[in-house]
Nucleic acid binder design. Structure first.
Lengths: 339, 339
DNA sequence: ATGAAAGCGCTAACAG
DNA sequence: CTGTTAGCGCTTTCAT
């Protein structure tokens, strides 16, 4: 692994760096460099296992063939899958990907955006905290290619790939209604994310369309960091007293898991006493007791689409920010809402 | 987001690039640059939101304050968690992380290693396919800082952070024995990974120590890509016929999930008829029916330690490849092995 | 206390 | 067909 440079191979072959560079970038023919020379260059480069220094290359070219991915938390299986598919698709197009987690922190996300730009990435995919309007607007103004994924800024006209949260939750709620549930609770996370607003809206619309009233006493939004403790109380309230519930809509997989844990610890029978339904799922929801009916997000499509849109934006330089895709979710009916 | 460069700020302030550079790298005092000048530089830089071009910086410095992480598959919750903790710890030390998935493919991994080196990363953390001996040896020879995680090369003296697979599986098997199981099956993945060899060894040793014979008919290693179909047959065999089993050790979380699915579809009672136990776990194993007893890996410690070792190696340049840590796993006893 | 100039490794006009 | 030369933006040695 003796490091070898362009210069070395030029000297060794008694050629100029230009010639070598041209050949190695597959511009030999177009620059009429003799087949002979090309072959010598390639052979030598391969023999010595020449690897161009990407920083030098990037600096010179002003680009890096790399796209950046910013997610709230890579250890959340949802984002991990997004990352996986983004990576695979990006590789198809010849791009590397650099990822980072914002940990749902706006400041971190902002830093990350800048830090990625300074690394000369060619484009950005962001599952945003939705609290960096200003930076997003700057990206647009600078005509920097990016696409929002999973979360978008409703007020901003930008590329995005999201999911139909409203319809998704409506379907979930209807499913409960159709199974004869009357007192449908709602447990979400306290958040200004549009996705979460939509989910709540979907719940409310579905109830109204079904002719039910929305009872604020059984609509809860838990603190993102203390949801586990709050869940304990919330579930306790919901399964006893005057506002007793016969079904609960959970808006994230971890809320569902946490909620089910509490229900079990209170010995509440699911689905007999309380049906539960989850937006999004995690690994073993089909093995849970009972198997959990969940609204599945099309992670693979989301990742693929985001990359396609981004690469398109990067490569044909006329950037028009209007590739806005809203994908459908899919209800996986298992047994947690009754049979 | 008007891009601003070092030169710009030097010109604007009527200083040289040197001075500005020095100040911005906190070397002002040491180079006796007047407080006054330092303040002007900082103020201006901040006002204009100056961000150094990391490629230029990296090229010049020969390093990038970035560490690379190569995992088999980022969408596996285990590696996603490792990535998460690596990222957090790296940030503490002021390093960024660039990750990529090898998809368990040796060729891809090899490319990734080179590609990362060309990006001037300062160090590498690898959960290796364990099929790139040569490259690993090259890294050592080149004195390039790296640490293996989760999987190591037993023949190579290098830094690593792994888990005591042998003891882990022994404990699992003993747990089964202690619960009165007599016919303990073993389902693993066909693999040359030392981790997998150790897990098998642990199983065999435990049985022997417990005075049982190892019955090859109930020791199965499934193909990594077709394990789901093979699982179907395997489980069917194991719960019927003359080699009927009363317990199964699974060596990965996805095997456990898959196995449990099959057991359920055959209406086998777990744990009454067959106990199951899992090496490693995934999200909702505690919610499964029955809750699955699993041997948990210390992902957080693994990630943290790997970064600590790596950064230490990077920063004090005398590289000695012998930071070898073997962490203990922890058995989470739930109900899939009986009460 | 500050500046000039060279150099990191690569690409790309422009010349021949 | 190939070479010369001038950058890309930053760091750093050596002067002053």
């Amino acid at each position: 692994m003796k490091k070898i440079f362009l210069k070395d191979i030029a000297e060794e072959l008694a050629l100029s760096k230009t010639t070598v560079s041209l050949v190695l970038n597959n511009r030999g023919d177009e620059n009429k460099i003799s087949k002979e020379t090309q072959k010598r260059v390639w052979d030598f480069a391969r023999k010595k296992n020449y690897q161009p220094n990407q920083m030098a290359r990037g600096l010179s070219l002003g680009k890096s063939e790399t796209i950046g991915l910013i997610v709230p938390n890579i250890s959340d299986i949802f984002y991990a899958q997004i990352a996986h598919h983004v990576e695979l698709k990006a590789k198809e197009f010849g791009y590397n990907v650099v990822f980072s987690s914002s940990n749902e922190n706006a400041g971190t996300e902002k830093e990350l955006i800048y830090s990625m730009l300074n690394r000369q990435i060619d484009g950005l995919i962001i599952a945003s905290t939705q609290k960096n309007q200003e930076e997003i607007l700057e990206l647009i103004e600078a005509k920097f290619p990016f696409v929002l994924i999973d979360r978008h800024y409703p007020e901003i006209k930008a590329n995005y790939v999201i999911v139909d949260n409203l319809e998704g939750v409506k379907n979930m709620a209807f499913h409960l209604v159709n199974n004869g549930r009357k007192q449908i609770g709602f447990i979400s996370i306290e958040s200004q994310l549009d996705a979460m607003l939509q989910r709540r809206l979907g719940y409310e619309m579905a109830l109204q369309e079904a002719g039910f009233e929305v009872n604020p006493a059984i609509v809860k939004e838990l603190d993102a960091f203390h949801y586990q403790v709050e869940m304990k109380e919330t579930i306790k309230e919901m399964v006893s007293g005057s506002n007793r519930v016969d079904a609960i809509v959970f808006t994230t997989h971890y809320l569902t898991a946490s909620g089910l844990r509490e229900l079990k610890s209170l010995n509440v029978k699911v689905p007999d006493e309380v049906a539960i339904i989850s937006f999004d799922e995690t690994g073993a929801f089909d093995l849970a007791d009972p198997p959990i009916t969940a609204n599945q997000q099309p992670v693979e499509d989301m990742g693929n689409l985001a990359v396609e849109i981004l690469v398109n934006e990067i490569e044909k330089k006329d950037i028009k920010m209007d590739n806005q895709r809203v994908l459908k979710t899919r209800l996986l009916i298992r047994r947690s809402c009754g049979v």
